[in-house]
Amino acid sequence: MVPSDEPRENRIRAIVRDELRTAGRSLLGTVCWTLLAAFAALVGLQSIQLAAFAVSTVAAVGFALVGLVVVASSLYLLYLLYWA
């Protein structure tokens, strides 16, 4: 009997099972990071909005800068998740 170069059925099943598990984790991670980035963007926009009602100029600039950094970071994360 000549050994075959083709993989056996049980080996193919094991490979498919491992790849499905990896794909499921990857999809779940993408969904979680997307939700986190969307929430962070909303918090950043709220911080920018709060800057309009700040008592002092320093506080307004601080809130606006923090808001801009958070929004930019969340947009960059979304870019990395979907377009990079």
Rank of each mutant, 00 (worst) to 15 (best):
9 E>R: 09
10 N>G: 12
10 N>L: 02
10 N>Q: 08
10 N>Y: 00
11 R>Y: 12
14 A>M: 06
14 A>W: 07
14 A>K: 07
15 I>D: 10
15 I>T: 09
15 I>K: 05
16 V>C: 12
16 V>A: 14
16 V>E: 15
18 D>Q: 14
18 D>V: 15
18 D>T: 15
18 D>E: 15
20 L>P: 07
20 L>W: 03
22 T>D: 15
22 T>C: 15
23 A>I: 07
23 A>F: 06
23 A>Q: 08
24 G>A: 07
24 G>C: 03
24 G>T: 08
24 G>P: 00
25 R>Y: 13
25 R>G: 02
25 R>L: 13
26 S>R: 13
26 S>A: 11
26 S>H: 08
27 L>W: 01
27 L>T: 15
28 L>I: 07
28 L>T: 08
29 G>C: 04
29 G>L: 04
30 T>G: 10
30 T>V: 09
30 T>E: 10
31 V>K: 07
31 V>M: 08
31 V>H: 10
31 V>W: 13
31 V>I: 09
31 V>A: 07
32 C>F: 00
32 C>P: 05
32 C>I: 01
33 W>I: 01
33 W>N: 09
33 W>P: 15
33 W>K: 11
34 T>C: 01
35 L>S: 02
35 L>I: 04
35 L>R: 10
36 L>C: 14
36 L>P: 05
37 A>P: 02
37 A>I: 12
37 A>M: 03
38 A>D: 07
38 A>E: 07
38 A>N: 06
38 A>H: 01
38 A>R: 02
39 F>V: 15
40 A>F: 01
40 A>T: 09
41 A>W: 01
41 A>N: 03
41 A>L: 01
42 L>G: 11
43 V>D: 02
43 V>N: 05
43 V>G: 09
44 G>V: 05
44 G>S: 04
44 G>P: 06
45 L>H: 04
45 L>Q: 05
45 L>N: 04
46 Q>A: 05
46 Q>M: 08
46 Q>V: 01
46 Q>Y: 13
47 S>M: 02
48 I>W: 06
48 I>G: 01
49 Q>I: 00
50 L>S: 05
51 A>E: 05
52 A>R: 05
53 F>A: 10
53 F>D: 09
53 F>N: 08
53 F>L: 08
53 F>G: 03
53 F>S: 12
54 A>H: 03
54 A>K: 10
55 V>T: 08
55 V>W: 12
55 V>Q: 13
55 V>H: 13
57 T>V: 13
57 T>G: 04
57 T>D: 11
58 V>F: 14
59 A>S: 06
59 A>H: 06
60 A>G: 05
60 A>W: 00
61 V>L: 12
61 V>M: 08
61 V>D: 04
62 G>Y: 04
62 G>A: 07
63 F>W: 00
63 F>S: 06
